[in-house]
Simulated scan of single mutants.
Amino acid sequence: MQKLLTRTALATLALTIGSEAMATEWNVSLWGQRRAFTEHVERLAELVSERTNGEFTLNISYGGLSSNRENLDGISIGAFEMAQFCAGYHADKNPSITVLELPFLGVTSLEQEVALSMALYQHPAAVADLERWNATLLMPSPLPQYNLVGVGDAPTSLADFEGLTVRATGGIGAAMSTVGAVPTSMSATEVRQAMDSGVVRAVSFAPHAHMSFGTIENATWWTTNLNPGTVNCPVVVNSDALASLSDEEREVLLGAVDEALDHYVTYYNEQTMAAWGPALEERDITQVTFPEAEIAAFREAAADPAAAAWIEDNTARGLPAQELYDFVTGMIAEGN
């Protein structure tokens, strides 16, 4: 009887070990905390687990695996299987997708941002660009137009930005420099300290980030209609890890992307934006709206020079920059 029990126990253990060996676990590197910006990744993890009965799981880490500026490097060496990053954090590493960070492109909704990003992510030049990092672009983190939260006297005209230190990355930074601001690039997790210490006097973010990273806590003003642009922050996967999935697992992962993005857009539009106005009013933050004539002048001064410089710089890198720019602006012009 003892031998029979021992054999039964060993068989059970072997089945358990075999079952565990068959399960697939991916590590996912994010930063900060769970917020609107990460809701699609959270939903993707739920869907993947549900549709595989827990046999494929995404283990999400908020800063425990890598810093946000090094997530692409971590993907390249297989330190984790999935990560989120923002193109403007290291434009030299992913120049192809920074076309979506050019100022005043004219994107008007999160849905349009999703369509543009997903189309660009499949462009051969973007695919090849990220292949250098052993990365496959999975989905964007669509963000609305950025605006500024600042301390001190509220600007009454664009001339008041002269000499103002502003946290602004990518094309937004380039746009702000045309009105005399001094843009500084730093990651989101560094911003609150820089603002409190006076390193910057204003911060360019989307509403969710202003709330998540505390820039509104000591702020005195907010621009309602500057709208210089946004940033592009994709979720990528390690290409080898993607290839190593079973056909069923890969189908589940890729098949869940659209639903995860739909959840993200709904969450952002219905919850984040609904909380934004009250958050400003509770803190008695002055809302600054510039005359349309000033915004038009800002757009004229910033948009074309930034686009021309981007095309010249990235053509020199060997990218089909004009083609990428025409691809994006053509989609926008068609209303896509």
Rank of each mutant, 00 (worst) to 15 (best):
E334W: 00
V151M: 07
L10D: 10
R283I: 07
N227M: 09
E39P: 02
V151S: 02
I332H: 03
E46V: 06
Y146N: 13
P234M: 03
A333R: 05
D284E: 09
I216Q: 09
P291N: 08
L143N: 14
S67T: 01
A83S: 05
L319C: 10
V41P: 02
G198W: 09
E101G: 15
A206V: 15
A309G: 14
L65Q: 07
L100E: 08
S117P: 08
S19E: 06
T230W: 14
W222R: 07
M139T: 01
A21L: 15
R167T: 14
G171Y: 12
A307W: 15
A275L: 08
A303R: 13
G277Q: 06
G63T: 03
G150T: 02
M195P: 08
M195C: 03
G18M: 14
G74E: 07
L253W: 02
R299E: 14
P140N: 11
E259A: 00
E131D: 13
A274P: 02
L324G: 11
R299A: 10
T223I: 08
R250Y: 04
L65Y: 05
A168R: 06
E334R: 08
L116N: 05
A174G: 12
M186E: 00
E42P: 11
N227V: 08
A306N: 10
G74D: 00
P320I: 09
P142Q: 13
A274K: 01
V48E: 10
E162H: 07
I75E: 02
E42K: 06
A241S: 09
Y121S: 11
V127W: 04
A202G: 07
D129K: 03
G214D: 01
P140I: 15
Y325I: 04
Q33N: 11
R167A: 14
F213L: 04
R51Q: 03
G214M: 02
S96D: 12
A303T: 15
Y146I: 11
E101Y: 10
L120N: 08
S49F: 01
M195V: 05
L245C: 00
T230E: 13
L105D: 14
A256Y: 01
T12K: 12
Q193V: 13
D240T: 09
H40E: 12
V328N: 05
